[in-house]
């Protein structure tokens, strides 16, 4: 069963759903931040899958660049969230 674009989208959707579940499941903000890496991972896989399985005629690196950007955004949001949580705990 060779992976296709649909398989990549399914894996990305599963990760996005897992991240959304983490955000809904946890009541405290610190634990809910566990949603950020999963959300970023799902979006990155979708973006990279577009590049891997897209037809000819498009810029071949655009999807990979967007995937890298999504990973950076996830890291930046995690830094902000962790700082916010620690500041709230320190009060």
């Amino acid at each position: 069963m060779t992976p296709s674009f649909a398989h990549a989208l399914v894996v990305g959707a599963a990760l996005l759903s897992g991240g959304a579940l983490a955000g809904v499941w946890r009541r405290d903000g610190g634990s809910a931040l566990a949603a950020l890496p999963a959300l970023s991972a799902g979006a990155a896989i979708c973006m990279a899958g577009v590049t891997r399985f897209a037809g000819a005629g498009h810029s071949p690196e655009t999807g990979q660049e967007l995937a890298a950007l999504v990973c950076f955004m996830g890291l930046a949001a995690s830094i902000l969230g962790a700082a916010w949580t620690r500041r709230r705990l320190a009060r």
Binding site: G30, S31, L33, A34, L36, P37, S40, A41, A44, A48, Q64, A67, A68, C71, F72, G74, L75, S78, I79, G81, A82, T85, R86
Partner: peptide, 20 residues
């Protein structure tokens, strides 16, 4: 390259968020 960046960024994010 994106796989390496994802490992670094998501790993750092996991350590920041999961070790809180």
């Amino acid at each position: 390259l994106v796989a390496l960046l994802a490992l670094v960024c998501l790993g750092a994010s996991a350590l920041l968020v999961g070790g809180g």
